[in-house]
């Protein structure tokens, strides 16, 4: 075995025998996948529950849109009372040719959705009953493979986060503990380059990252969670590997600064936890204020997550590789430059 493979396999053996490292690399992110996966299992495909009275073509058309979960009431007053009490967002009453809509303005999004759909349905029924051929037609088709079910962003998010976490801790702890235990000096007293040593550790980290990804995706695709991979999922692999390199470099910077394992753990968490929230791996940042989204654009984890999601679940083309690759590679160069400047073979 060459020095490189021998060192890689030493690093892998060390990792797979370390229960704490295994927990944080596998069980910890998996725990979030399971919790979020079960918690948000029904969201996304959710129908809006509304009340109806009467029957006829309008009610039938409303039902066939699939957007509503209809609750029938005998009288309009009953349904109206439910809306007033905040139990339902809206009630639709059909009496002869009059369609009455009453909605609660407290949830404006739901109200607008209900209004839009009900008006659309009524117009459609009007045209058909008048026997008029519509002059304009909307052809709508959804883009995603299966709407945005929460599991579709939970798995890529937790995967990016878990793999990044493993890469940061892997390289930072190795560097600090090797320096403290004089393994670094011992390596320096052998005719081997530091790049062979770091490179072999990086390859081990990449292998661990790939195993993590397989496990997380494997669990996500269980029928219980129902993750569906897009056709070009394999294009996520280069993004994943570039992400591992970038976060390995982040770990080197932390490992170059810190003297003890305790300090390393603290600093690594202080970096990775806020970054995780600012990168939208736990929940999407679509609703976040603009300044926060601007900060988010500078987070390598955000770009790693977007790149991974683009191919894993969003079925984007290869051009979606460009942005994440450029950002992650640039970030890696920056981190390596800092690490090289701060790095010290010895603690004194």
């Amino acid at each position: 075995m060459s020095a490189f493979t021998s060192l890689s396999s030493a690093a892998l053996k060390g990792f797979f025998r370390d229960k704490v490292a295994l927990f944080f690399s596998f069980a910890f992110p998996l725990m979030f996948i399971v919790i979020f996966g079960l918690l948000f299992a029904d969201q996304g495909a959710e129908q809006i529950e509304i009340g109806v009275t009467g029957d006829g073509p309008v009610i039938q058309a409303l039902e066939s849109t699939g957007a509503f979960d209809l609750t029938e009431f005998d009288t309009f007053q009953e349904g109206f009372a439910q809306v007033r009490d905040g139990e339902l967002p809206a009630v639709v009453a059909v009496e002869g040719s009059t369609v009455t809509l009453r909605f609660a303005a407290s949830d404006q999004t739901a109200a607008a959705t209900v209004r839009g759909i009900v008006e659309g349905v009524v117009n459609d029924v009007n045209l058909r009953s008048a026997g008029v051929e519509p002059q304009f037609q909307v052809r709508a088709q959804q883009v995603e493979d299966s709407s945005l079910k929460p599991i579709q962003f939970i798995v890529p998010g937790m995967m990016s986060w878990g793999v990044a976490l493993g890469a940061v801790f892997g390289s930072a702890f190795t560097l600090v503990s090797w320096r403290k235990k004089q393994v670094l000096r011992r390596i320096r007293s052998a005719p081997i380059g530091i790049f062979t040593v770091l490179g072999s550790r990086l390859v081990a980290t990449m292998m661990i990252g790939i195993v993590q990804a397989i496990v997380f995706i494997g669990v996500g695709t269980l029928p219980l969670f129902g993750l569906q991979l897009a056709g070009r999922w394999w294009l996520a692999i280069p993004v994943l590997l570039l992400g591992i390199i970038a976060f390995f470099a982040v770990g080197l910077v932390i490992g170059a600064f810190c003297k003890t394992e305790e300090a390393t753990s603290g600093v690594a968490n202080a970096v990775i936890v806020p970054m995780a929230f600012l990168s939208g791996v736990f929940f999407p940042l679509d609703g976040a204020p603009g300044w926060m989204q601007t900060i988010s654009d500078f987070m390598p984890l955000k770009h790693m997550n977007e790149g991974v999601s683009a191919f894993l679940v969003n079925n984007q083309g290869p051009e979606a590789l460009v942005m994440p690759s450029v950002v992650l590679a640039g970030f890696t160069v920056l981190m390596l430059a800092i690490a090289a400047k701060v790095f010290n073979w010895e603690s004194s």
Partner: peptide, 25 residues
């Protein structure tokens, strides 16, 4: 020979020796 803790994490005695041998090619 440096201080007695200069070993690779979690490796057995024979694995330590093989890994150090690898450092020298």
């Amino acid at each position: 020979q440096l201080q007695a803790s200069a070993f690779f994490d979690k490796l057995t005695s024979i694995e330590q020796l093989r890994t150090f041998a690898a450092l020298y090619g």
